[in-house]
Amino acid sequence: MPSLRSSSRTSLRPALTAAAVLTSTALLATACSSSATSPSGGSGDSGDSGGKQTVTFMGFYGTFQDAFTKTVIKPFEEANPNITVKYVPIQNSTEVLAKLRASTARPVADVALMDSSVAPTANKEKLFAPLDASKVPNLAQLVDAAKSKDGHGPAVTFDSLSILFNTKNVKKAPTSWNDLWNAEYKGKLAMPIADTRGVALIVALEKILQADYKQDIDPAIDKLKQLSSGVQTWQPSPDVYTAIQSGDADIAVGWNARGQYYKDSSGGVVQPVLPKEGTVTQVNTINLVNKSQNTAAAQKFINYAIGAEAQKAFDDEAFYAPVNKDVKLAADTENRTQASPEQQKNQIPVDWNWLTTRYTGWVDRIKQEVIGG
C-alpha cells in the first residue's frame, strides 16, 4: 500500500488531473480501511487477509528458546509465510503473570507459556482466553494429561524434577533426594527453589517423610531448614545448569529436560538423576492471551506447537515428553525424558489444581523460613 507521503508527492505532478487525484485518494482510504483493526480481534484476525502478521510469544529463556525457535517457530514460519513469531524470553511463569496483569487493556503478548501451577490463576483472572477447538484441531490429538478441562491452554511439554551433579567433581553419583543432606556435599549445593522447583521438592520430601502435602508441609520445611547451612547458593547465575557445568556447584536441583540438554552440550559433565523415591511431573501450558490482536494467527501457532510434527522435533532436541498421542520418540530419546518407562513408574502424584491455591504461600515459606531463616 503506498504511503500518504508518496501519494501527496504524486498528486503534485502536472500530468495528474484533479479527477485522478480524487480517485487515488478514494482508493487509498479504502485500502487503509480494509487493513484497520477490527472490533472482533485485530488486524488480519480472520487469518486470510494476506497481510503480514506478528504473533508475540512469551517463552522461557536460554536453551528452551534456542530449541523451540529451531524446531517449532522456524518451521511454522516457513509453512505460514504471512506470520512472523516474535519470541520474548522470560525467566519464569511468575514473570509472565506479572507482565500480563500490567497490560490487560493492550496485552504485551499473543501467546504465552506458563506452568500448570500458575496458569489456573491466569485463567481465573481472564488473562488467558479459551481456545476455539475448530481453530486448534490438534487439541483432539492430545493425551488426557495434556488436556485442559475448561478449554484454556493445554500442556505443551511434560518434564520432571531431578538432581543434577558434576561428574568431574562428584565421584559417587547421588541416587536419592536424601543424598542432598550428605556431609560430602556440604557447601557445594545450588538450590534455586523459590519457585516451582521448590514446590515440587516439597511434594517429593513429603512422600519420603510419609506426610500428606495437602494436610501439613511442616515436615518438608523443617527438613529443608536442615539443608540450609550446606547450600552454596540459592540463586545460581546465570542458571543452575551452567553452575554445575562450570563446577561452581557440584550438586543441584533442576529440571530433567534442561539437565539432559546440558549433559550433551557439556560432554557429560552435567548429569541429571531420577531419585529412587520418584519425582514430580512439571507441566508447561501454552495459552492464548485474552484480547490478543492476532487471535487467528495465535491459535494457528498454538495448533502447530501441539501438533505431532512440532512435538517430535522439539522433544528430540530438548528432551521433553510429548503431549501429542501421535508422537513416538526413539527409544534412546524417550528413555531420557519424562515419558520413559522408569520415570512413568516413579511419578509422584500431584494435584496441581489444588496446589494453585497454595503455590504462593509455599514459595513464601521457602523464601522466609528456608532461604532467609
Rank of each mutant, 00 (worst) to 15 (best):
P154N: 10
S49A: 10
S7T: 09
E77H: 08
Q271M: 10
K186A: 13
T54A: 10
N324Y: 12
A321G: 07
T30G: 11
I366E: 01
M114H: 09
G254D: 04
Q271D: 05
A155T: 10
M58E: 05
R365M: 05
K86P: 08
L161E: 00
Y262A: 06
Y87Q: 03
D150W: 02
P275E: 04
W354V: 07
A146E: 03
T84Y: 01
A243I: 02
Y320K: 02
K171A: 13
T279G: 02
P349E: 14
I208H: 06
A194P: 01
A297S: 13
S116N: 15
D326P: 00
A296S: 07
V118T: 07
P349K: 12
K99G: 03
P236M: 13
R9Y: 12
K263Q: 12
F314Q: 00
G247M: 09
E77G: 07
G259E: 01
I73W: 00
A102K: 15
K52T: 11
G151C: 07
N290V: 08
A67T: 03
E78T: 15
V323G: 00
Y304N: 00
G373L: 14
A249M: 07
L329T: 02
L355G: 01
M58K: 03
V289C: 07
P349C: 13
K172G: 02
N123E: 14
Q311K: 05
R9I: 14
V350I: 10
A18R: 15
A26C: 13
Q271P: 06
G42H: 04
A190G: 12
R258T: 00
N287I: 04
Y241A: 06
S24I: 15
R101E: 15
P14C: 15
N80L: 08
D326L: 12
V170A: 11
V199Q: 02
S228V: 13
Q245C: 05
T71Q: 01
K223N: 07
N335M: 15
V269D: 05
L22Q: 14
K223H: 11
K124N: 07
V280W: 00
D48E: 10
T23D: 10
M58T: 01
N178W: 03
V21D: 10
P238T: 09
Q91H: 09
Q226N: 10
V143Q: 11
A20G: 02
L139G: 03
A243C: 04
E309G: 04
V280A: 01
L113Q: 09
D179V: 05
K214Y: 03
Y87F: 14
Q368C: 08
G42K: 02
S34W: 10
T279W: 00
F68T: 00
T37L: 14
P39M: 13
P107H: 13
T337Q: 07
S148V: 06
Q210I: 08
S266A: 07
S33T: 09
A112M: 07
Y213T: 03
G230H: 02
K126H: 15
K312W: 06
G42M: 02
T285Q: 12
G153W: 04
S237R: 01
D315P: 00
A200S: 11
A308L: 09
A339P: 01
N82Y: 11
N178P: 00
D218R: 14
L161R: 00
